[in-house]
């Protein structure tokens, strides 16, 4: 999976100054994320958000945690890309050490880019942190 780094995302967003551009950026990120094949949309992978479904699968490869996600809403998919940029292909220690709240603050993307129940981001962040802790 070819993900931008958190620094690249922060740099990109710094150049976009109105909401339409920022949202278009998120939408494009969402479209670029590969997602999961339909048969992996299983209840056991479902992270329930209020307005859209999010699926999360994790595995370990060479001591690093890999995350594969999907959402039926493209903006949520884009938001998930922001989260995966921070967590995908990192060790459990790196994941737990990462200051996600500060990262979201830096993204400075207003209401919807903060982890709220509505967009399921908080649930996905919690789940990833739980997986890392159990590791």
């Amino acid at each position: 999976m070819n993900l931008p780094s958190t620094d690249e995302i922060l740099d990109d967003l710094a150049f976009l100054d109105d909401w339409e551009q920022r949202y278009q950026y998120i939408i494009d990120l969402g479209k670029a994320l590969p997602g999961l094949p339909e048969e992996q949309h299983k209840d056991e992978y479902l992270v329930r958000g209020c307005q859209s479904n999010v699926w999360l699968i994790s595995e370990e490869k060479d001591g690093k945690l890999q995350f594969h996600v999907d959402s039926d809403a493209v903006i949520v998919q884009g938001l998930l890309t922001l989260v995966l940029a921070a967590y995908h292909d990192k060790t459990a220690e790196q994941i737990l050490a990462f200051d996600i709240d500060q990262y979201f603050n830096q993204l400075d993307l207003e209401n919807h880019i903060t982890p709220t129940r509505g967009n399921g981001l908080r649930a996905i962040v919690n789940k990833i942190q739980t997986i890392a802790k159990a590791h």
Binding site: W19, E20, Y23, C50, Q51, S52, D72, A73, V74, I75, V76, N111, H112, N119
Partner: peptide, 21 residues
């Protein structure tokens, strides 16, 4: 081709409050 939640997000940015879900 568009999820209701996505419609809700973009409407909200334009000041239009609806419910989705």
């Amino acid at each position: 081709g568009i999820h209701p939640a996505d419609i809700g997000f973009i409407l909200d940015k334009q000041g239009v409050a609806i419910r989705t879900g």
